[in-house]
């Protein structure tokens, strides 16, 4: 039952994604054409506050609510997977107008067509697991 807190944070996140219009295909199309500040403002604000917060967490060695030290895991220092995987992801993001979180938010919002995107995103993830040993990383 203690895990209910994660449902509550999820609800908050879903509301933010919908109310900010970050779930909208139009906003993503507009972003990739650099026509408006909206999406850049959202991501820029989140990253700026996020970076200050992460800096403070590290500086003051803050602990999580279990009392354990908060650790941030560095990403692997390879580059192929990030540029190739990132490009494939970007193609899908701009086509569906939605990244993984917003796909689910859209279904809750009432756009049931995003169920198809979700099902195929799961299949795509499976295909990656199947082929990962053959891909450059």
């Amino acid at each position: 039952m203690k895990l209910v807190r994660f449902v509550l944070v999820g609800i908050l996140f879903g509301i933010i994604m919908a109310k900010s219009e970050a779930i909208s295909w139009y906003r993503i199309y507009e972003m990739f054409h650099f026509d408006a500040f909206h999406m850049y403002g959202i991501i820029g604000t989140a990253v700026t506050i996020g970076a200050i917060g992460v800096f403070l967490i590290k500086k003051f060695k803050l602990r999580d609510f279990h009392g354990n030290p908060i650790v941030f895991f560095p990403k692997d220092k390879t580059y192929k997977r990030y540029i190739f995987g990132g490009t494939l992801f970007g193609l899908g993001w701009a086509l569906a107008g939605s990244c993984p979180g917003p796909i689910v938010v859209n279904i809750g919002y009432g756009y049931s067509a995003y169920l198809i995107v979700l099902v195929f995103a799961v299949i795509g993830t499976y295909l990656y697991g199947l082929l990962m040993d053959k891909l450059p990383h």
């Binding site: 996020g50 190739f84 995987g85 494939l88 899908g92 990244c99 099902v119 795509g124 990656y128």
Partner: peptide, 24 residues
């Protein structure tokens, strides 16, 4: 919609994360 889904699922795992994991 299905190709978009495949690209999102394949690409996010290949890149080790999506907008939340990497961009944020």
């Amino acid at each position: 919609l299905s190709i978009a889904g495949l690209l999102i699922g394949f690409g996010s795992r290949y890149a080790g994360g999506c907008t939340s994991g990497h961009a944020i």
